Amino acid sequence: MSTDFTETEHAVLCWLATSDAQNRPNVSPKEIYAQTGETQLVIADIASARSVRNIRANPAVCVSLIDVFLQRGRKLEGHAEIIAPDDPEFSQLAAPLLAMTGDAFRIRHVISVRIERSSRILAPSYLVRPDRSEADLRADACRLYGVRPPSD
Score class of each variant (00 low, 15 high):
58 N>M: 06
78 G>K: 14
118 S>F: 04
93 L>A: 05
44 A>M: 02
138 R>A: 02
122 L>P: 05
47 A>G: 09
115 I>W: 08
42 V>A: 03
100 M>E: 08
117 R>A: 04
140 D>H: 10
79 H>M: 01
63 V>M: 07
86 D>K: 11
63 V>C: 04
101 T>S: 13
42 V>C: 05
93 L>W: 01
111 I>G: 01
90 F>E: 01
116 E>R: 15
86 D>A: 14
80 A>F: 06
142 C>K: 00
98 L>C: 10
144 L>P: 00
51 S>T: 01
139 A>Q: 14
131 D>M: 15
48 S>H: 01
127 L>C: 13
50 R>N: 14
79 H>Y: 05
106 R>C: 11
74 R>Q: 02
86 D>T: 03
136 D>R: 15
146 G>P: 06
139 A>T: 07
64 S>E: 07
102 G>E: 07
83 I>R: 04
67 D>P: 12
142 C>R: 01
130 P>G: 05
48 S>K: 05
142 C>V: 03
46 I>T: 05
114 R>E: 10
111 I>Q: 03
68 V>C: 09
84 A>S: 09
134 E>F: 13
123 A>C: 09
52 V>Q: 00
79 H>R: 08
108 R>E: 09
43 I>K: 08
110 V>N: 00
143 R>A: 12
127 L>G: 15
144 L>Y: 11
117 R>P: 11
130 P>H: 09
92 Q>Y: 08
89 E>I: 05
46 I>G: 04
46 I>A: 04
59 P>W: 06
102 G>P: 00
127 L>S: 11
135 A>T: 12
88 P>V: 05
47 A>D: 06
109 H>E: 06
80 A>G: 07
77 E>G: 11
67 D>G: 03
141 A>D: 00
116 E>N: 15
127 L>Y: 13
102 G>N: 12
114 R>Y: 13
113 V>Y: 12
81 E>L: 09
95 A>M: 06
46 I>L: 04
104 A>K: 15
131 D>I: 06
57 A>G: 13
55 I>C: 02
92 Q>S: 10
76 L>A: 02
78 G>W: 10
81 E>P: 04
137 L>T: 05
95 A>F: 08
128 V>Q: 12
71 Q>I: 07
95 A>P: 10
82 I>C: 13
126 Y>F: 10
145 Y>C: 04
88 P>A: 03
75 K>S: 14
117 R>D: 06
144 L>F: 12
129 R>S: 09
91 S>K: 15
72 R>H: 11
112 S>V: 06
110 V>W: 06
146 G>K: 10
48 S>I: 00
90 F>L: 02
70 L>C: 02
65 L>C: 02
57 A>H: 07
102 G>C: 05
120 R>P: 11
126 Y>H: 14
125 S>A: 12
96 P>T: 04
115 I>R: 07
137 L>K: 02
140 D>L: 11
116 E>A: 13
99 A>I: 14
139 A>E: 04
89 E>K: 12
125 S>N: 14
43 I>F: 07
47 A>P: 01
56 R>H: 05
62 C>V: 13
91 S>W: 14
88 P>L: 02
